[in-house]
Simulated assay, not measured.
Amino acid sequence: MSINHKNIPYSILELASVGAGFSPAEVFKNSLDLAQKAEAMGYTRFWLAEHHNMISIASSATAVLIGHIAGGTEKIRVGSGGIMLPNHSPLIVAEQFGTLGSLYPDRIDLGLGRAPGTDQVTAQAIRSDRMRAVYQFPEEVGEIQQYFSEDNADHQVRATVAEGIEVPIYILGSSTDSAHLAAKKGLPYAFASHFAPTHLFEALHIYHNEFQPSEHLQQPYAIACINVITAETDQEAEKMSTSMVRMMLGVLTNNLDYMQPPTEMNAELRELMQHPAFQRMLKYAFIGSKETVKQKTEVFLQETGVNELMVASHIYHHEDRINSYRIFSEIMKGK
């Protein structure tokens, strides 16, 4: 299989991971530097996640960070991967992204998900009625679409900065529920296979088989997210991955900590990576040299048939992360 960036776009999901010894300001500076370099490397989008009460992830004020990244780049699309809608008022989301769409025309994406992006106690602190909002997710997506419509000018409640502004909406999912919604609404669909791969193929099957063309999209458009850590050699990439392994262990054991510097891969970490929980979560973590990652990526594209790849990475050293994304861009360009 020949991979060509002209028919398989590739993008970045940025979590703004906070390494030990780094301040949020340094993390945000590095995120912008990555976005600028990704733009030059041919990446299509630079999406920012939404997480709360996690010391290892700084992407909590997603709309603010999108403005920061879009303001420092020229052409790469910048968006949310995603806005966790039950945490927010649809009106406020429409106003924020309508504003971003006006400031950066034809460059802003609005990815919407229904997970909390945090623990339940924090989710309750964010929005006390969020469980009602979870069940009303389809209706609230519709509300946002209405606020962006020029037809909303006659309504009593308006997001005037959003009316008529072109901000594409993407439905995000980590199970099968949102696949039904994306298909019904005729919207593009992005699946979080970088941490929840179990239902990837079932969700893609549902999305493609139930898809109904809309004014937004005539054919299904599916994005899948993978983890990629690549370097000049398999051994070097494996060492870099120890930061991610320790970070994932903290998530699984609810013992969250800053992302730690890489160490040599040892027997204990290798055994840990064989644990079923790790195997499930990191099924699509492609770690290795350029050739190793290329082979795994080609198999993934063949098996899934997705229209676009989105890449996440937890790499401690900024220079290593830039290099990993550079190598992956060369893979996708067929170099």
Rank of each mutant, 00 (worst) to 15 (best):
V93S: 12
L249K: 10
R158G: 01
F195S: 00
D109H: 14
I8M: 06
R130I: 04
N7F: 06
H216D: 12
I126N: 06
S80V: 08
G81T: 06
D109E: 13
Q235P: 05
I169F: 09
V141S: 03
Y221N: 07
L309C: 06
Q120L: 10
L48R: 01
I8A: 06
L13H: 02
A58L: 09
A182Y: 00
G334S: 05
I331E: 04
I66G: 05
G101E: 02
G142K: 13
K283G: 00
V251D: 02
A38D: 14
M248F: 09
M259W: 04
W47G: 02
K283H: 05
A35R: 08
V64N: 15
E139P: 02
A224W: 01
E163G: 04
S243F: 08
L32G: 02
A123Y: 03
D119M: 11
D154W: 13
E210M: 11
E26G: 14
L301C: 01
F286R: 05
A192P: 00
Y170P: 07
S243N: 11
A277I: 12
F211E: 01
R45N: 03
F195L: 03
A63E: 12
H51M: 01
I144F: 09
N307C: 07
G19K: 01
K290Q: 15
D109L: 14
